[in-house]
């Protein structure tokens, strides 16, 4: 027990870093994903093609590569990020692409009649999206978003590669130093707690949306 107490502060500091990346990525990339998905459905083909290309790159290459590219690669051409900013930048770019694809699918399932009935009621495009379409899309995409949210919790461990002090690094350092498995097991337990909490929160959101069909 005393050993756990001894390493707990460093693990918690690491977990806090993982959570910070988790929350900022979610808060920024979900709304951005909605915007990008609208662009993917746009009739303006240069925008649509550009965004398709972006999504293709982000989903077709490893997030690990993207992290390394932003932190170690970009400085070669003079673009320098701090570790934390580099991590956020790569995560947001990557997750926005995934969320955009999910939302695009969601938007495409909404019958044209919903847009048309909003139009004959003289609602503007923004009003239609905010009050009618987006709530229906959100309900449809919650399960897929849920998968990505759980993935994101685990993916935060990738920041290890650019030397950011996250949960995994804290555990790994303690294991190497003290030659014991306990820190790594604890790290696993903390990840389980975080993914469990995320799943629970998503279930609540899903329940909230189940009052209508």
């Amino acid at each position: 027990m005393t050993y756990i107490e001894q390493i707990a502060p460093s693990l918690l500091t690491g977990a806090l870093m993982s959570l910070k990346i988790f929350f900022w990525t979610l808060i920024v990339s979900i709304p951005l994903g909605v915007l990008v998905s609208l662009g993917l459905l746009s009739k303006f083909s240069p925008l649509r093609l550009l965004l398709k290309f972006y999504v293709w790159i982000m989903r077709g290459t490893p997030l690990l590569l993207q992290l390394i590219f932003v932190f170690y690669g970009l400085p070669i051409i003079g673009i320098i990020f701090q570790r934390y900013d580099a991590a956020l930048c790569a995560f947001i770019l990557n997750y926005t692409a995934y969320f955009a694809e999910i939302f695009r699918g969601g938007f495409q399932t909404i019958p044209a009649g919903q847009f048309e009935s909003a139009k004959v009621l003289r609602l503007t495009k923004t009003q239609t999206l905010l009050h009618i379409i987006i709530p229906q899309v959100v309900k449809i995409v919650i399960p897929s978003i849920g998968n990505e949210v759980v993935n994101l919790v685990k993916d935060t461990s990738l920041v290890y590669v650019i030397g950011l002090g996250d949960l995994l690094r804290a555990g790994n350092v303690a294991t190497a130093r003290d030659v014991t498995l306990i820190p790594l097991v604890l790290v696993g337990v903390i990840y389980l707690l975080m993914t469990g909490l995320a799943s629970y929160a998503l279930k609540k959101v899903e329940q909230h949306y189940s009052k209508w069909r």
């Binding site: 004959v120 009618i132 229906q136």
Partner: peptide
């Protein structure tokens, strides 16, 4: 005003 064939009420409202 239009009453559509399949009504097109907004299910979320």
């Amino acid at each position: 005003g239009v009453v559509f064939q399949n009504y097109q009420l907004f299910p979320n409202l």
